[in-house]
Design a protein around this nucleic acid. Structure first.
Lengths: 183, 183
DNA sequence: GTCTATACGGGGATAGAC
DNA sequence: GTCTATCCCCGTATAGAC
């Protein structure tokens, strides 16, 4: 892996762990085993590098989610597979967590990948819910868009509950509650 | 308001806006219109002051929520009143947001108020849901604890969705989806 | 491409005067 | 109680050599 690549993956990790404000160029360089010169040769500065890292994380997240969405099974099965996917719950969501960062939200270039990713998630889930309604799996009165927003929120909020109590079980409980309501 | 009080309320504001890592003693002093000496006279340092501010914010949050929980009306009505309460959605949750802060989570003294608050919220909602089940408002198969966790997660995650898109409507949509499922 | 030198303000605090 | 001085390391670069 060349230096530019190591810088990106190191930044992905640090943004996940510490957020944007909590991540310094120096920390990135140390984790990537790259010098100052190297970093500022490949990127114009911290925002530029962060943008590359966030874009990458967003793409990886979609690929992961798509694996469950595109699996075989009923709509409910695929939604449940997504919600119950193996997750490193206490680390939280590497995309969603950046939403709390004022500097990220204030920068259109940094916020855009977050918006695109969560919006994509909602629309994939909405399509799946509509499919389930059409198949008679879910009650016909469900609003697919609203229900999809609810499910994405449960995942994001599930991380909050789990981290607050240092207990992954709270994530699972929130998700199970949502799946029970969906039936 | 004396200096100690101004320091606490300023810290509350800054923690809400910028989180713990993003909040510096200097910024706190400026907002509180207090000097270094004053801050270090009243508090041993940043963690001590943060602890006071977080504890205060947690108490305020409970008081606010209790207003809806203790209102008259059916269980559903009170849950809906809580979920639909007027909120400054794009600012997010002043307690939940700290959950994303690695230094807060790593410190038992700082994490404890978060855990207590979210746990209290869940148990109040669980009691309300159990009440609704007993009254025949909700289907009997609902697990009150799990459903309560789901609702708290929807609120916390609703903020994430809203901030990602800079749109309070996404919070509303997630909450509406949850209320529709609850019926 | 990467290294080292240099810069300047901020983060987080302590010390002692008033 | 509050002020000012001082400290030391970090954050975030830029400049120029190799």
């Amino acid at each position: 892996m060349d230096a530019a690549e190591r810088l990106i993956t190191s930044t992905q990790d640090l943004l996940w762990e510490r957020g944007y404000v909590g991540t310094s160029p120096k920390a990135i360089q140390q984790r990537a085993d790259a010098g100052q010169g190297s970093m500022y040769h490949h990127f114009t500065g911290k925002p530029d590098l962060a943008r590359a890292a966030i874009t990458r994380s967003a793409a990886e997240l979609r690929d992961l989610a798509a694996q469950q969405f595109d699996a075989p099974g009923s709509a409910y099965d695929r939604i449940a597979a997504y919600l119950r996917r193996d997750r490193d719950v206490l680390r939280g969501c590497r995309v969603g967590r950046l939403t709390q960062d004022p500097d990220v939200i204030a920068s259109p270039a940094l916020r855009e990948p977050l918006e695109a990713t969560l919006s994509w998630l909602r629309s994939r889930l909405a399509a799946l819910i509509a499919e389930g309604v059409a198949a008679g799996e879910f009650r016909a009165s469900l609003d697919p868009e609203a229900t999809a927003a609810t499910l994405v929120a449960v995942v994001q909020g599930g991380y909050v509950l789990a981290r607050s109590a240092d207990s992954p079980a709270l994530f699972t409980q929130a998700v199970d509650g949502a799946l029970a309501l969906l039936r």
